[in-house]
Simulated scan of single mutants.
Amino acid sequence: MNKQLKLATLAATLAVFVSGCATYTGQTNDPNDPNRTQRGALIGAAIGAAAGLLSGGDAVERRQRAMVGAGVGALAGGAVGVYQDRQEADLRRQTAGTGIDVSRDGDVIKLNLPDGVTFDFAKYTLKPQFYPALNTVASTLREYNQTIVEVSGHTDSIGSDSANQLLSERRANSVASYLIGQGLMRERFEIVGMGKRYPVASNDTDSGRSLNRRVEIRLLPVRS
Rank of each mutant, 00 (worst) to 15 (best):
S103Y: 05
T37Q: 13
L126H: 02
R93I: 10
Y83M: 13
Q87A: 08
Q129S: 12
L134F: 06
G73R: 02
R188F: 05
R65H: 06
S103P: 00
S162C: 04
L134S: 02
E61T: 10
N32L: 13
D156N: 14
E169A: 07
M194Y: 08
T136H: 11
A50N: 13
R170H: 14
R104G: 01
S210D: 04
V175Y: 08
E216I: 09
S177M: 08
R197T: 05
D30K: 05
V222L: 02
L42G: 15
F17N: 14
T136L: 12
T147P: 01
Y131A: 09
Y83S: 09
G183Q: 04
Q87E: 15
A50M: 07
G106W: 15
I148M: 02
A74H: 00
G153A: 12
G71A: 12
Y131P: 05
D33I: 10
Y131G: 10
I100W: 07
A79M: 06
T147R: 11
L91D: 10
G40P: 11
A201E: 04
A172N: 10
S55V: 04
L14E: 07
R65C: 06
A59P: 12
G97S: 07
S103D: 04
G71S: 04
E216C: 08
K196H: 06
L220Y: 02
V68Y: 00
D206P: 10
Q146F: 05
L219G: 10
E150Q: 00
S103N: 06
Q146W: 05
A49H: 05
A22R: 11
N32H: 12
R218I: 02
R223W: 01
S202Y: 01
S103C: 09
V215M: 13
S177D: 04
P132G: 08
M194A: 13
V175P: 03
L126W: 08
A70G: 03
L53W: 07
A50G: 10
L10F: 05
R39E: 05
L166P: 00
F121V: 04
E61M: 06
R188D: 02
A12V: 09
D30Q: 14
I148F: 01
K3G: 02
G69Y: 01
D206N: 15
S174V: 01
N2V: 00
T140L: 09
S168K: 12
E143W: 12
F121C: 04
I109R: 12
V68K: 02
A22G: 12
L184Q: 09
